[in-house]
């Protein structure tokens, strides 16, 4: 499902991470931290370094996957966490009681609890910037142009074409949550 903005344009957002272009510089993490005032010790977006055993062999941007079947949305008792019609999973801070069930439920471990605010937090694709017509801070900052905001509702969108062609794949689809962050690996 996609949404119509005030200008009548419909959007269905996703994020494409081209790991071939990522140099692991963490500029995206820093830009996110500054933009969203993420408290020390927590992260909305981070780079998971490559490992010689088990994990990924390349640096991986890791943040909320904005799942279509998001466990956090299902379990949130207050409906504070919900998925917008443009595909972005957001938290309504005015409704949240801070029960932490969403943090427990997220298989991607993408949420943290801000003790000072008494609320959970996570990547919202810089929704305020998006609504103002700007790209998310991480996408804007990425020095290798490894990150691209895709709009699946736009047939001419190049990043969306990489998703549709299957070149960009979701992480751990076996969890069944239908993530909206897609990765291009090993070209």
């Amino acid at each position: 499902m996609s949404t119509a903005t005030k200008t009548g344009v419909r959007h269905q957002y996703a994020l494409v991470v081209d790991t071939n272009k990522c140099i692991g510089c963490e500029a995206c993490s820093v830009a996110c931290r500054v933009e969203n005032e993420v408290p020390a010790g927590h992260w909305r977006s981070r780079i998971v370094p490559p490992t010689s055993s088990g994990g990924s062999k390349v640096p991986m941007k890791w943040s909320c996957m904005h799942c279509a079947d998001a466990p956090c949305v299902q379990v949130c008792p207050t409906k504070a966490t919900y998925r917008r019609s443009d595909g972005i999973v957001v938290i309504d801070a005015a409704r949240c009681v801070g029960c932490k069930y969403c943090i427990v439920a997220c298989p991607y471990g993408a949420r943290y609890f801000d003790e000072k605010a008494g609320l959970p937090d996570k990547c919202d694709l810089c929704v305020d910037r998006l609504d103002a017509g700007l790209a998310p801070a991480c996408v804007q900052t990425c020095v290798g142009r490894a990150l691209a905001l895709a709009d699946l509702a736009d047939p001419s969108d190049e990043a969306a074409a990489r998703i549709r062609s299957g070149e960009a794949k979701p992480l751990h689809p076996e969890l069944g949550t239908k993530p909206s962050v897609y990765y291009v690996v090993g070209k």
Partner: peptide, 13 residues
Amino acid sequence: RLVYLYSNWQSPM
């Protein structure tokens, strides 16, 4: 805010 806890019938909480 606790009144909101009663609202999501999909949530075990």
